[in-house]
Simulated assay, not measured.
Amino acid sequence: MGFMSLGCGWDYGRKCQWETDILVGFLPKAWSDRTHTTFTLKQNYIPWSIRCCDRFAVEPLSCGIYLNLITGEDYWVREPDRYPGDSYYGFTSRLRAHLYFGQRFTYYLKNDSLLRNITLYYEFSANDLDIIAKCGNKSLELSEIVYFSVGIKFQLLRL
């Protein structure tokens, strides 16, 4: 998703346990050859939420999938002509699918404010290409394919 992302989304389901988010992020030059923009479509599932008091809840499991697209000349959807054959790599370097799981901690604000709640979360994720590589290479360590993310989510409205 990049170093930092900003977006919007909505929650739905019987107990609002499903969420869909659309995010735009950036990856600074400090972590890449140049600055890149990222676009993410994320589907979250939160099976249960445990209210600890009036204003605080713990979501002990959040999980889901997201698609992440990165911009830049070095990333492609179809392989460039410089690679031999029709399917030298057989995958796109621009688009990755990720599976993730994590936990969330939510603080609920007053009902009459525009800002409804603030959620702190962390996630562990792995992308499709790294998972396939791990299946074919048992010497590849989990720490080499699993990514750690932290974030803050602000819910402004509830319709």
Rank of each mutant, 00 (worst) to 15 (best):
residue 25 G to R: 02
residue 27 L to V: 04
residue 27 L to G: 00
residue 29 K to N: 13
residue 30 A to R: 12
residue 31 W to C: 03
residue 31 W to H: 09
residue 32 S to E: 13
residue 34 R to A: 07
residue 34 R to D: 13
residue 35 T to A: 10
residue 36 H to F: 13
residue 37 T to F: 15
residue 40 T to R: 04
residue 41 L to F: 10
residue 42 K to Q: 07
residue 42 K to I: 01
residue 43 Q to A: 00
residue 43 Q to E: 04
residue 44 N to L: 00
residue 47 P to Q: 07
residue 48 W to T: 06
residue 48 W to K: 11
residue 48 W to L: 06
residue 48 W to E: 06
residue 51 R to I: 08
residue 54 D to N: 14
residue 56 F to Y: 11
residue 56 F to W: 11
residue 57 A to D: 09
residue 57 A to W: 08
residue 58 V to D: 10
residue 62 S to R: 02
residue 62 S to C: 06
residue 63 C to F: 06
residue 66 Y to W: 09
residue 66 Y to L: 00
residue 68 N to A: 05
residue 69 L to E: 12
residue 69 L to F: 15
residue 69 L to M: 15
residue 70 I to L: 09
residue 70 I to Y: 10
residue 75 Y to N: 08
residue 76 W to Y: 15
residue 76 W to D: 04
residue 78 R to M: 11
residue 82 R to P: 10
residue 83 Y to F: 14
residue 85 G to E: 14
residue 88 Y to V: 05
residue 88 Y to N: 09
residue 89 Y to I: 01
residue 89 Y to M: 04
residue 90 G to F: 05
residue 90 G to R: 06
residue 93 S to P: 13
residue 94 R to M: 07
residue 94 R to H: 13
residue 95 L to K: 03
residue 95 L to F: 08
residue 96 R to T: 05
residue 97 A to V: 08
residue 98 H to E: 01
residue 99 L to K: 00
residue 101 F to E: 06
residue 102 G to N: 02
residue 107 Y to F: 11
residue 108 Y to T: 04
residue 111 N to K: 11
residue 112 D to E: 10
residue 113 S to I: 12
residue 116 R to S: 04
residue 118 I to V: 11
residue 122 Y to P: 07
residue 122 Y to I: 03
residue 122 Y to H: 14
residue 123 E to K: 09
residue 124 F to H: 09
residue 124 F to N: 05
residue 126 A to Y: 03
residue 127 N to I: 04
residue 131 I to N: 01
residue 132 I to W: 14
residue 133 A to E: 14
residue 135 C to P: 03
residue 135 C to F: 12
residue 136 G to W: 15
residue 137 N to D: 15
residue 138 K to Q: 15
residue 141 E to Q: 14
residue 141 E to K: 13
residue 141 E to D: 15
residue 145 I to G: 03
residue 146 V to D: 04
residue 146 V to L: 07
residue 147 Y to N: 10
residue 147 Y to S: 07
residue 148 F to W: 12
residue 149 S to M: 07
residue 149 S to N: 12
residue 151 G to K: 05
